[in-house]
């Protein structure tokens, strides 16, 4: 009790808030700053609030005020729990190809998030369309997601912009990162066929360097360049679509150049390379946080509770923040200052 009383001090609350403001500004000005600048003031405020909830009668006497502060505490706990469970990652998906968990580049993963859970996701990337207005201003993105058996997707879904694909607790968001993918197959001299999609840099952002490298199964390094017949339209609206554009694939193998149209193949050392066609790929951000709905609920309940508290206080004729016994706890009588 001796510790709890000073820990519940409102002056400590003020100190904690000042420290948090300082921590936020340090983190803002220096992206490399330790997260301790935020975590320590938040911990101090959380313990301060917890202690105040236990011993401060002002909080417990007002259900609205109590509710607001309880919700703040719940939000802090849920935010901490989110760090343990969350997953943030990126993946590029090619039209007509299935999602593979192994392709996901993980950015952040909480220690309690199971990678096996991600492997339960199964769907196929459908057609992609991105609208552009004159001046290369990106408009709406439409990305079709096709279901696979047992995934709980009723049918094809269209996602894009503010519509995420929600599947097994994961959310997949389209991004501005998308481009062309060459569908290639390699037939070795032993007759074994390897197929895949080679993604070229984001389009139209990098329309001037549609190049990539790939090492064939025979071990031969290949330099590939995609040349589109039509330049990017900058003075009119247009749609980046999944229909094959007029394009050729330039293949450089050991200093020798080859030009392939969709459907054509070239014999190289150790096998033949078949350019089957051109598709689009879409870059997605993957997000998993099972506490999102609870964070939202706690925040809304907290604000409603505070609104209730203020309305009760205002009806009683006091300001919401009057110190006890202060001259501001009065009604709306209007004596004049008469300076």
């Amino acid at each position: 009790m001796n510790i709890i009383k000073p820990l519940s001090s409102l002056r400590l609350t003020l100190a904690g808030m000042l420290l948090l403001v300082a921590g936020v500004l340090v983190s803002y000005l220096d992206a490399a700053a330790s997260s301790a600048w935020l975590v320590l003031p938040l911990l101090l405020l959380a313990f301060n609030l917890l202690a105040a909830l236990l011993v401060n009668p002002r909080l417990s006497h007002h259900p609205g005020l109590l509710g607001f502060h309880l919700c703040l505490l719940v939000i802090a706990v849920l935010a901490a729990a989110s760090q343990l469970m969350l997953l943030e990652g990126r993946v590029e998906l090619t039209e007509g190809r299935a999602f593979a968990a192994g392709d996901v580049a993980v950015i952040r993963q909480g220690p309690w998030h199971s990678r096996e859970q991600l492997e339960t996701l199964a769907f196929v990337q459908g057609p992609i369309q991105v609208e552009y207005a004159a001046g290369l201003r990106r408009g709406q993105t439409r990305s079709a997601i096709l279901p696979m058996a047992g995934q709980g997707l009723g049918g094809a879904q269209e996602v894009g912009d503010t519509r995420a694909l929600k599947l097994a607790g994961y959310r997949l968001y389209t991004t501005s990162n998308k481009g062309y993918a060459a569908i290639l197959s390699w037939t070795g001299e032993d007759g074994v066929v390897h197929g895949g999609a080679l993604h070229f840099p984001s389009y139209p952002r990098y329309d001037w360097k549609q190049v990539n490298r790939w090492t064939a199964p025979s071990g031969e390094p290949l330099a590939l360049e995609l040349r589109l017949d039509a330049p990017v339209p900058v003075d009119r609206s247009w749609v980046l679509g999944s229909r094959d554009p007029q394009a050729v694939l330039l293949v450089n193998a050991g200093g020798a150049g080859h030009t392939l149209l969709p459907g054509e193949a070239v014999q190289l050392a150790g096998g033949s390379l078949h350019f089957e066609g051109l598709r689009l790929w879409m870059g997605y951000e993957i997000y998993y946080n099972p506490f999102l709905p609870w964070l939202f609920t706690a925040a809304v309940i907290g604000v409603l509770a505070l609104g209730w508290y203020f309305s009760v206080k205002f009806r009683s004729g006091a300001t919401a923040v009057s110190p006890a016994g202060s001259p501001t706890e009065m009604g709306d009588a209007i004596p004049s200052a008469r300076h």
Binding site: L306, F310, V321, P327, A337, R338, H339
Partner: peptide
């Protein structure tokens, strides 16, 4: 000088800020 006293006008200041806090949240 003909306006209400400081203590009186202080009331709406903090009432408005209190409600503003809700809308900011």
């Amino acid at each position: 000088g003909s306006l209400p006293a400081d203590e009186v006008l202080d009331v709406p200041v903090w009432r408005l800020m209190s409600v503003a806090f809700i809308f900011h949240s």
